[in-house]
């Protein structure tokens, strides 16, 4: 079944079509919201919200952009908005630790896991910009629009985030982790 057919059927509430779209794009949606959320539990809520918004908005999808791009944008917007709400709530409820505890080291931890863990430990503002720019490939103009900041602010946050990320990765390097030593040591 073509994507256009799936979309048309999903618009009409066809559960099979929605499921097929979910199967196709869930990893992409989950990846971006997970990284923005920096937390597994939040990520699941954010991903669900993103899908609900996307399914609701399906009738407005005109096919000007690729469906994956359209869906991705909804996921990013939805996660950023949800994160803002979470941050506001956390501020009201009291300070949260800046970093998330790192699980115990093991020799077989992959480089990707280290990157993900370091991302989770970045302060939220830095994380958002770093993910949008370096992981998702957004421009500073697009990031400025998404986050409601000037492109210059996005740039400045990005450079700080890269430096902080580098420090975090070096700290996460296992003493005998040859892979990490090769990849990250100076």
């Amino acid at each position: 079944m073509t994507e256009a057919t799936l979309i048309r059927r999903a618009c009409q509430g066809d559960g099979q079509a929605i499921r097929a779209l979910y199967e196709r794009y869930a990893p992409r949606v989950y990846a971006v919201v997970r990284r923005i959320a920096g937390d597994d539990d939040l990520a699941q809520d954010y991903a669900q919200e993103a899908w609900i918004r996307a399914i609701r908005a399906l009738p407005t999808f005109r096919g000007d952009a690729r469906f994956s791009t359209w869906l991705h944008r909804i996921a990013v917007n939805s996660a950023l908005q949800a994160l803002r709400k979470t941050e506001t709530r956390q501020k009201r409820e009291g300070p949260m630790p800046e970093t998330i505890a790192v699980s115990p080291e093991s020799s077989d931890v992959l480089l990707g896991d280290r990157l993900e863990r370091a991302l989770d430990q970045l302060p939220v503002r830095m994380r958002k910009v770093l993910i949008l720019h370096d992981v998702e490939g957004y421009t500073h103009d697009e990031i400025g629009e998404l986050l409601g900041v000037a492109p210059g602010t996005s740039k400045s946050q990005l450079f700080k985030a890269r430096g902080k990320m580098r420090t975090l990765l070096q700290a996460l390097t296992a003493p005998n982790g040859q892979e990490e030593v090769e990849a990250w040591s100076i």
Binding site: G112, L115, R162, L169
Partner: peptide
């Protein structure tokens, strides 16, 4: 680091 971030894989829910 920047290259590696750009190559991060998608994640299964």
């Amino acid at each position: 680091q920047t290259e590696a971030l750009g190559s991060l894989p998608d994640l299964r829910p």
